[in-house]
Design a protein around this nucleic acid. Structure first.
Length: 578
RNA sequence: GCGCCCGUAGCUCAGCAGGAUAGAGCAUCAGAUUCCUAAUCUGGGGGCCGUGGGUUCGAAUCCCGCCGGGCGCACCA
């Protein structure tokens, strides 16, 4: 990265420096927290190009009134070279009007930074482990997994762009009862492949056809060796092979969405390495695990409930409703018992942890946060981002999905139907904590209307214009940029918000903000483009004016660059032709 | 019963760590293509921001109650 500075970064520093000056001058007391100070464009462009609320948020803690502080601050900011005017508005907003040079500098910054335009050092190079998907390795990915997968992947890219090192991780739950069920289901398919009539798949096993190829493979490899053998002889073998096969499938499904993980962490390996036992010993030594009786479940108490002594983690000390067992009465680890050790392990190689979970696991957030806080001494920030359920509809009718019944819409089906970009963009155009409906039929039918194409079209249009320009002998050229008019500079100003949006989205862990920004930027571009309909002198290519044409193409190229950078964060293709 | 999430235009949703007159797409109505891709643009109509209180210079945004919807409340994963 060069040391080219964006307008956003520059003005954040300028306001900060002006506040320093006022502090030295005694207008402001020392040590004032500035976290609430914002520097951003006002909603109404008539108010100016940039606004800061500094005077309003600092007046109270400084023991002065907003207007007086605004006066003092405005005198400082008025000295800046790119500032043409400062006005105080409303209760104490400071509105800055910037010179043309400011926007021309931003345009040059986009060109200079290229793919790095918008990249931020906000993260300070700290490592964030983002765990997402982590679907049980018992079958192909279905649409229920899709949203978390896309949101997690986009968030990981966003955090990377915002200056973090990112580890993309998938936790493979290959140690629970569900993988034994998987092994038994495969065993049945294995016998079937050897000619046995297995009839209906019994209740409680996975019925999906997707296990048949593995059954056939095992049949070819082992013949009848395990057909009548006791389960103990083949369970581990079949389980290992089945999990491996499912992971191959899952990776292929994720690849369809352009998703890849750096680490696939195995729960079974974690247990084999004794990590949960280590964690238990440590927790016991710190009186955070004790042997106690588990309370009856709240709400519905089962008839056969009887209290048993289990090793319990004191999650109530951290705000949970009850203490949680880390091992079952047979001594094996509960999901939670292994999971806390897993999170402790992740914390060894990262400065912060982010988990993307489905909302159906919301009830377990408190205990795992409690465990991480305890095991890391509160030193490793850990957040769980819940992604709400996607209600799958087909022509308005809810589709009941259950992997157990084999009735589910696979991710692969949807991707092949509407395409990766539509799926990703759709999942990223609402905030993750809001429920969403995904009507399969409607999305297929309306895929041509999908907003993703609006953004992609803007990019393609720019590429097409550059191609056309090249064909007529015009190349993007910054030389004439200083002649660009108000409309062009307004477009630059809009695109110039990208760095600020990236930082805000990363800080809030909300990749959907990038999607909305791109929609708005594309709209600004399309709108500008259409100026050329009525005003031919506003077209990108004006044959008789090489200087203006070069400048416009330069402008277009940079807008395209910003669109491309944003789409890259979302994992959506920036197509050059449509 | 308890916990978490959501409630903004007819529909689907934004609203940027409280900020200036609440926005977009779809739908609807009226317009714009001898012109670089109309997969586009311009304009109109459409809102007690679920509801009642509170906090303050200022609330769709923060806090509390209520109503409505979703998810969860295991030694499951």
């Amino acid at each position: 990265m060069s040391d080219t500075q964006t307008l956003h970064a520059a003005f954040v520093r300028h306001v900060d420096a002006a506040l320093d000056t006022l502090t030295v001058a005694g207008v402001l007391p020392a040590g004032l927290a500035r976290g609430a100070v914002s520097v951003e464009p006002p909603r109404d462009p008539a108010h100016g190009d940039l606004a800061t609320n500094a005077a309003m948020v600092l007046a109270k803690p400084a023991g002065t009134n907003p207007r007086a502080l605004a006066e003092a601050l405005s005198a400082e900011l008025a000295k800046l070279p790119l500032v043409e005017g400062v006005s105080i508005a409303g209760p104490g907003f400071l509105n800055l009007r910037l010179s043309r040079a400011a926007w021309l500098a931003e345009l040059a910054a986009i060109a200079a930074l290229g793919d790095d335009y918008g990249r931020s050092s906000m993260g300070g190079g700290t490592t964030v482990n983002v765990e997402y998907v982590s679907a049980n390795p018992t079958g192909p990915m279905h649409m229920g997994h899709c949203r978390g997968a896309v949101v997690g992947d986009a968030l990981a890219s966003l955090l990377e762009f915002a200056g973090h090192k990112v580890i993309r991780e998938y936790y493979v739950n290959d140690a629970g009862a569900q993988v034994d069920v998987l092994a038994r289901s495969v065993h049945l398919r294995y016998r079937e492949a050897l000619g046995e009539d297995v009839g209906e798949i019994p209740e409680g096993l996975y019925p999906g056809d997707y296990l048949m190829p593995l059954g056939a493979e095992l049949a070819a490899e082992f013949g009848t060796l395990y057909t009548a053998a006791p389960e103990a002889d083949w369970l581990i073998l079949f389980r290992t092979r089945a999990v491996a096969a499912m992971l191959v499938m899952i990776r292929a499904d994720l690849a369809l969405l352009g998703i890849r993980h750096d680490v696939f962490a195995s729960e079974a390996e974690l247990q084999a390495a004794g990590k949960p036992a280590e964690a238990e010993a440590w927790l016991r030594a710190h009186d955070l695990v004790y042997d106690g009786a588990l309370e009856a479940p709240k709400g519905k108490t089962p008839d056969d409930w009887e209290p048993v002594a289990l090793p319990l983690f004191r999650s109530t000390k951290f705000g949970d409703d009850q203490d949680r067992p880390i091992r079952k009465s047979d001594g094996s680890w509960t999901y939670f018992g292994a999971d806390l050790a897993y999170h402790f392990q992740k914390a060894q190689s990262a400065d912060a942890l982010v988990d993307i979970w489905g909302a159906d696991h919301a009830g377990t957030v408190k205990r795992i946060k409690a465990a991480v806080a305890a095991l890391t001494g509160g030193k490793t920030p850990f957040e769980v981002r819940l992604v709400q359920m996607v209600q799958l509809l087909r022509a308005g009718e809810p589709v009941k999905m259950s992997k157990r019944s084999g009735n589910f819409v696979t991710l692969a089906d949807v991707v092949s139907e509407v395409g990766k970009d539509v799926v990703r963009f759709t999942m990223l155009t609402r905030k993750p904590e809001a429920q969403m409906d995904f009507d399969f039929a409607a999305v297929v039918e309306a895929s041509k209307e999908n907003p993703v194409f609006y953004v992609q079209y803007a990019h393609a249009r720019i590429c097409s214009t550059l191609r056309k320009g090249a064909a007529e002998g015009f190349a993007p050229d910054a030389a004439g940029a200083s002649d660009l008019g108000a409309e062009e500079l307004a477009l630059v100003a809009f695109a110039g918000q990208f760095p600020r949006v990236v930082e805000a989205a990363a800080a809030a862990r909300e990749p959907h903000r990038i999607a909305f920004f791109l929609g708005d930027l594309a709209a600004a571009f399309h709108s500008y483009w259409n100026l050329g309909n009525e005003r031919p002198e506003k077209r990108f290519i004006v044959a008789q004016d090489a200087r203006a044409t070069g400048a416009r193409l330069f402008l277009g190229k940079q807008i395209g660059q910003v669109l491309r950078n944003g789409l890259a964060l979302l994992g959506v293709a920036a197509v050059e032709e449509m």
